[in-house]
Design a protein around this nucleic acid. Structure first.
Lengths: 276, 276
DNA sequence: GCTACTTTCGGAACACGTTCGAAAAGTCGA
DNA sequence: TCGACTTTTCGAACGTGTTCCGAAAGTAGC
């Protein structure tokens, strides 16, 4: 039961059936009739409540919040996903959200898990070496296209907050490493090293890609690579303006393959670093 | 001249001599006599100004700002470095800072560069392979201890905003790779791969280390690794609670060595992955 | 029906990074 | 000397994530 982070929300599963969320069509309409007599998110138990729970009944469920967040992201983009907007989308007060999620980070992790849940489990190769690479690639690809995931990847204890449906990738890497002859401890090392490489690649690319999009800066920088001091940094000066072009290439697959081959026992079967 | 990011601040060098900053002892005292007749940061040119510059003279120099920022970090910690606090420390308005720095990110980059400038250039080994590793390690170590650097490492175009005194590490990696037989393009690939790994390690460790420090959360998570489904993720379940302990170990040096050996031409001289 | 008690709700407020526009304080040319 | 121009300064304001605390809306016991 790796979704232990539901914590005190065991009862939340009672209204988890409406995962697809009843659209709160009222939206801004509720701003007039606040704290109104809206029936709860569980589709009301028949007006004469008695849900077994004491205290004021909740207007909103966690599932409803997540659905609204996804709707907001799909419609306006993930940059527009803010606590206040999300609350407005739901027609509730902004601070109310904090009774359903601990922080925005947690919300993002929840969304990330939901997304990872929905990607297909690829058929992994038989060779354990290839399996490690394939699983790491799947992990990379699952995260790379979600820019807002970048703000989460390094939070807390990395994989600690992935839920069951995402952990199969971690499992596959660790298992593949062990099948290559690693001890469990070494297998964890292998995963961590590959994870560092993966997360670094994703974060750098995500942040590099952000600038040109949001840039109202007319000239980001006059000339950085073109006029380097050839006596101090001759190799960089020789590369000069070609750096951005070189840095833009996607070298993740090759680097991952090389790293995995180096970390796993046995001699590397592929010749290291051929120009394709 | 890699400090091309001074951009329109060429004249700033005119008062760059007072890098140690005249402490603004007045601090809060200025709040009463704002826009007063304080003499400029350049140590005044003799009351009858004529500095050659047109426009209102500046009360604060960039060097003064950086010095105050370092003072603030040393005294209260980097988490307390905010624009408003920094402005208060200088006795100026918060928004005034934005005429000397473009953003807080730029301020952090400036501080980072200053820090990197001050670390010693180690004597690099003769063997190009070892040189690559040594330079990458120096880069790692220079950044690893500065938690606030983590918020910067992935911004913009990574090394693009490092200034001359930090670029020697990049140069050393690229040069070492070329000396191993890489083409310039391949050498850039080598650097990028090692950089991804390095930046990933730093960011993950920085964020992991943050939680226990700032945590007022009584129980961060009930049980994450202890009760994993042994049928779904058997290897992870077998590791169980030992994961945090394993993940806490510093495996960067070994991973870096392995990665570098894999990326650089020639067969790896050290046996891959011995348990030590 | 009434009083606890328990839980959720949400407005006010805080500190943050950042933008805007008006005022201040100089230089320069007539 | 006076107006145009240039640059800096800074209060006000915006939108952000988040915390506090009082009010609301239920159930449980009497």
């Amino acid at each position: 039961m790796p979704d232990a982070r539901e914590t005190s929300d065991a009862r939340e599963t009672s209204d988890a059936r409406e995962t697809l969320a009843p659209k709160p069509q009222d939206g801004a309409a509720r701003t007039g009739s606040r704290t109104g007599s809206r029936t709860g998110p569980a589709g009301d138990t028949g007006r004469s409540g008695h849900t077994g729970r004491t205290g004021r009944p909740r207007l909103t469920s966690r599932a409803e919040i997540l659905a609204a967040a996804r709707r907001l992201i799909d419609r306006d983009g993930w940059e527009k996903l803010t606590i206040r907007r999300l609350a407005a989308e739901l027609g509730i007060g902004a601070t109310t959200l904090y009774h359903h999620i601990r922080s925005k980070d947690e919300l993002l992790v929840l969304l990330l898990n939901h997304h990872v849940d929905q990607i297909a489990h690829p058929q992994l190769p038989d060779d354990p070496r290839d399996r490690v690479v394939a699983a790491a690639t799947a992990l990379h690809d699952a995260l790379a296209d979600w820019p807002w995931a970048a703000e989460i990847l390094t939070a807390d204890g990395f994989v600690g907050l992935l839920d069951a449906s995402a952990l199969w990738m971690v499992e596959a890497v660790v298992a593949g490493a062990e099948d290559c002859g690693c001890t469990p401890d070494q297998a964890v090392d292998v995963f961590r090293d590959l994870w560092y490489y993966t997360v670094g690649e994703i974060l750098v690319r995500a942040h590099s890609a952000r600038r040109p999009a949001e840039g109202t800066h007319p000239a980001p920088r006059g000339a950085s690579f073109s006029d380097l001091d050839a006596t101090q940094v001759p190799r960089l000066a020789a590369i000069g303006d070609r750096w951005p072009e070189l840095a833009a290439r996607d070298t993740y697959p090759r680097g991952l393959r090389a790293f995995a081959d180096a970390l796993l026992p046995h001699a590397p079967p592929t010749a290291p670093r051929t120009t394709d």
